[in-house]
Nucleic acid binder design. Structure first.
Length: 104
DNA sequence: TGGCTGACAAACT
DNA sequence: AAGTTTGCCAGCC
């Protein structure tokens, strides 16, 4: 337990939401940041450090474009889960966006 | 102590 | 439509 440092609460909140993202759906860093607080960059930083055990590929940019760091790993996951992809190589936010606030 | 960096976002040209 | 610039928040040098 322990829980030592406070950041753990913040990290836990972010990871919890990411784990709640249903397959075939995606959310944005800004949306998560709006729920857990802080800024979108902070969410990204947390994911980079502690986002190992969570489906981080379901978290994308606000434009629906794939983050440079995701790599082909995320692309395969999208196809495998049936995530609505756009011909431009991005994601169809209008169709695949999942709201962490309402949970739908 | 000040400045740079970073899984971002929104606005402007 | 695309590329560039500024802002935000926290951690690290």
């Amino acid at each position: 337990m322990l829980n030592g440092p406070v950041d753990e609460g913040y990290v836990e909140a972010v990871l919890a939401l990411v784990e709640q993202i249903p397959a075939g759906r995606i959310t944005t860093y800004g949306a998560l940041a709006a729920v857990v607080g802080g800024g979108p960059r902070q969410v990204g930083s947390v994911m980079a450090r502690y986002g190992g055990p969570v489906p981080w590929w379901r978290v994308v940019r606000a434009d629906g474009t794939l983050p440079p760091s995701h790599g082909d790993r995320a692309r395969g996951a999208y196809l495998a889960e049936g995530t609505p992809l756009k011909l431009s190589g991005g994601l169809d936010l209008s169709r695949a966006f999942w709201d962490p606030v309402t949970g739908d």
